[in-house]
Computed example of a mutant assay.
Amino acid sequence: MQIIKNYWTYILGALIGAIAGYLYWFYIGCSSGTCPITSSPIISTLYGVLMGALLGSFFKKIINK
């Protein structure tokens, strides 16, 4: 439980990023398969998780100040 308390901004950012990545693939994604990130729902979702966690780390620094 302490881990969730310490890293809640990363977890929340990753969750929002995963949803955003999947929705991006679903509505805008590349159907031809030539786009490396948006041609697969798994890759698009994982990319969203990564970007969301990075954004969460930015907010963690702002909250701690």
Rank of each mutant, 00 (worst) to 15 (best):
M1C: 01
Q2D: 06
Q2I: 00
I3N: 01
I4W: 08
I4Q: 04
K5N: 08
K5F: 06
N6W: 02
Y7I: 04
Y7L: 10
Y7V: 04
W8G: 02
Y10T: 02
Y10H: 06
Y10Q: 03
G13M: 04
G13L: 03
A14E: 10
L15D: 05
I16A: 12
G17N: 08
G17F: 00
G17V: 03
A18H: 01
I19W: 09
A20Q: 11
A20K: 12
A20M: 12
L23S: 11
L23N: 11
Y24E: 11
Y24P: 00
W25Q: 10
F26M: 12
Y27F: 15
I28G: 04
C30I: 11
C30P: 01
C30S: 15
C30N: 15
S31F: 04
S32T: 15
S32A: 15
T34Q: 12
C35R: 08
C35N: 15
P36K: 04
S39N: 07
S40M: 05
I42T: 13
S44G: 15
L46R: 03
Y47W: 14
V49T: 10
V49H: 08
V49P: 13
L50I: 14
L50S: 13
G52P: 11
G52A: 08
L54Y: 06
L55S: 13
F58A: 06
F58M: 05
F58E: 05
K60F: 06
K61G: 04
K61I: 01
N64W: 03
N64G: 01
